[in-house]
Amino acid sequence: MNTKRKATTVAVAGTAVGALGLGLLAMPAGAEDAPELPEIGAQQLVGSVLSAEPKAMAGTAEVDNELGLPAVPGVPALDAQQARVYYDGAGKGRIALEKDSSEHTYVLGDDALWSYDSEAGTATRTALPAEARQQPESPEAAGADPAQAATQVVEQLRKTSDVAVDGTARVAGRAAYELVLTPKPDERTLLREVRVAVDAEERLPLRMQVLTHGTTEPALEAGFTDLEFGPQPERLFEFSPPAGTEVTEQGAGEHPRDEQHEAAPEVDIVGEGWDTVVLARIPEELRQQAESGDGDMDMAAMLEQVGKPVQGEFGSGHVVETRVGTALITDDGRVAAGAVPEQVLREALENR
């Protein structure tokens, strides 16, 4: 299989796992009896996850973003309540994110990726010529598929982790191995471990749990609540905009736009593994709107309420901390975020 096409198959849209590099997803888990499975080595399980061929499937993932970090103008956040995920096993896919009374739909067909927002009545068609059949980034859809999010986490963290298999689990009615990644001693992170339930038969990640120190309850969790493998109707991978939809055409490699048609912010990645930091800049127009009160939020007042003032070589700003991550928003509109202590964010900003 063409490697670019395979990468596209794994997820309809989105290559970033999220601002903290770990999905930014949470969902309630249902406990089921652990199945008996043959023993398997940790590295063998990791290898099988990363080399597994995508299969035709349909599934539902419940999603709840409870990070506690503030919404930042121009920086997309995943706030869907659940997602329906479909693949045809040959390169096409569909992800439908449900949000209250609206839905965001991403459809990857033969030659284009469609992004549709039912509430805004807008759609974007991104052409995918054969020589450039690699998915455009879509921060909102990133991580909506638990299998995609977990596979990326395993790929990103395996070199900086101690890896083990810790028993079995049953997720969405399917038997799974529990793969555990623990940060190596020199990693600077707020997290204790990431647990990935891997389907024993298909080697597809079914659930991802992120745990921090001081509690046995996952701080973040993403997983399928139902999942079926098998052929899917071809119509799922076709899209025709409803009448009255405002359609935007763009070429492969162009940056997607948000609901206000502003260009998505450039994102820079600093470091690797557990202490990865994501850097971005709030678009100037949105920052001015937020500061003047012309936008949907008073960003300065919000940061004063939920953050603490900080100063350093990077300038001045506010830090917002949660159990699983930290965000530093500077007064000149820069944003640094990661599953790391404040000092790591300071260093990332000061070295740029």
Rank of each mutant, 00 (worst) to 15 (best):
Q148G: 10
Y86C: 06
M302K: 05
F239S: 05
L286P: 02
E178C: 14
A52T: 09
T276V: 06
V270W: 13
T330Y: 02
A42W: 07
V324H: 12
D111R: 10
Q156N: 12
D110K: 05
E217N: 07
G315F: 11
V85C: 08
S292L: 06
Y177R: 10
R281D: 07
V72S: 10
L328R: 11
E266T: 11
A280H: 00
E304A: 12
L20F: 08
A19I: 07
Q82S: 15
L179S: 06
P54I: 11
M1E: 12
V165L: 02
Q250T: 13
P73K: 02
G47N: 06
L191D: 00
E140S: 09
G253F: 04
D332E: 15
S316W: 00
S161Y: 04
A127G: 12
E155W: 03
E131T: 05
M302L: 15
V247C: 08
Y87A: 12
G121E: 05
P265A: 02
E262H: 09
A219N: 13
A252N: 11
A71T: 14
P28Y: 03
L78W: 11
P183F: 09
A90S: 14
M302E: 14
E259T: 11
R334E: 05
W274T: 05
K4F: 08
D111C: 07
E272D: 14
D162R: 06
M297R: 08
P283W: 07
Q289S: 05
V63S: 09
P73Y: 05
G333M: 05
H255Q: 13
A71P: 08
P54Q: 09
R323C: 07
N2T: 13
L20Y: 08
A13K: 03
K99H: 08
H255V: 13
T215I: 09
V267I: 14
A300Q: 12
A71C: 10
V154F: 01
A112N: 05
V49E: 04
E39V: 04
E137Q: 01
A56F: 12
M27T: 15
R84H: 10
Q82V: 09
P146F: 04
A130E: 15
V267F: 10
G244L: 03
D199R: 09
R203Y: 15
T168A: 03
G14A: 02
D145C: 11
R94E: 14
T212S: 13
G41V: 07
G21C: 02
